[in-house]
Design a protein around this nucleic acid. Sequence first.
DNA 1: TTTTTATACATAAGAATCTTAGGTATATTT
DNA 2: AAATATACCTAAGATTCTTATGTATAAAAA
Lengths: 112, 112
Amino acid sequence: MNDNSQLFKGTLTTVVLKLLNDNKKMYGYEITRKVKELTNGNIQLTEGALYPALHKLEADGLIESSIELAGNRQRKYYHLTKTGKKEIKLKLADFSSFIADIQNILNLKPSL
Amino acid sequence: MNDNSQLFKGTLTTVVLKLLNDNKKMYGYEITRKVKELTNGNIQLTEGALYPALHKLEADGLIESSIELAGNRQRKYYHLTKTGKKEIKLKLADFSSFIADIQNILNLKPSL
DNA sequence: TTTTTATACATAAGAATCTTAGGTATATTT
DNA sequence: AAATATACCTAAGATTCTTATGTATAAAAA
């Protein structure tokens, strides 16, 4: 992760759930590539952060996994559960509120 | 802190430096009130997070303190150092970049 | 063809940052 | 008189991350 890693804390699960919401199913390594692609290389998700986060989301019933094979190589695909679909809506709303609040303190440009 | 506490993580020092940048000098308790006021009560800074953060910022040379008395009660006022003034500019730029990146993933409304 | 890089999963030690809980003291409001 | 607000502080524990490491297959480069 880059110098914004401190800021990225707390958004990891929201990001994962949102990507799974938009892409139906994804595997871990794919998620790291997608985040890098969408942020022009600015955010590099570390696997040490991602995999435990995925395991926790699954333990909490927000996502489910299924193993698929690509040649001899295993991929563990994740998809949202019904609970996960509800949760991402809440998390996006929370994030919006947070940005509005922080905007009141930091006075950033509206384009941000 | 509220349910957005997870999101607020990592922004604490940015918020503190920005408030000191805008208000010249503030004391700890005043900072907690100001954050609450600016966020319509949504963000309640806990003292267990704030005071250690202030001490670290001072140890790092970004802020300096001076004790003043209000009646018999002590207030520890903080102000930015020259280094701190440079740092808050960097931190605001970092935060803007972060928001832009996260926006690419979460697809929030532009007004956010 | 050997080595490096990319893909793909995972865990564990340690660091950083926060919450929760407590402590001390003065001032004001109920 | 008691409760709340102001004002500082620390410490234990929880959470979440970084860094480092491990395993294995596939592809690219040397």
